[in-house]
């Protein structure tokens, strides 16, 4: 299973969030669904109503930002490390 690491900002809304989480999934979309199962409500923090990545959220596989931010079809291997980060913005 891939390992997912989160920005600490999400811990405010999901106090039970672990530093590294192992979840099943062959695509980023499946990973997001698995995260929603593990942390109910989290899906809506990462993707919008139509399943597209939120504008100010970044997901990396290894060091590479995912390519398909609309459908989240990027392939995920069991050995991958996935990072869920927030883009920086001011104010």
């Amino acid at each position: 299973m891939a390992t997912v690491r989160f920005t600490q900002h999400l811990a405010r809304f999901f106090p039970a969030l672990e530093q590294d989480v192992e979840v099943p999934g062959a695509t980023v979309s499946e990973i997001v669904r698995a995260l929603e199962d593990k942390y109910p409500g989290m899906g809506g923090y990462l993707v919008d109503d139509q399943g597209a990545l939120r504008q100010h959220v970044n997901i990396f596989i290894g060091n590479e930002i995912i390519h398909d931010q609309k459908r989240l079809t990027d392939k995920v291997e069991d050995t991958d490390k996935i990072f869920v980060l927030q883009a920086l913005s001011g104010g």
Binding site: G41, D49, Q50, G51
Partner: peptide, 22 residues
């Protein structure tokens, strides 16, 4: 208590080339 916010049904569009999300 957190509740599910209103969500646009899958496939809804603002305009023909723009998907609808809250």
């Amino acid at each position: 208590e957190a509740l599910a916010a209103p969500k646009y049904p899958e496939g809804e569009k603002i305009k023909d080339d723009l998907e609808a999300a809250t």
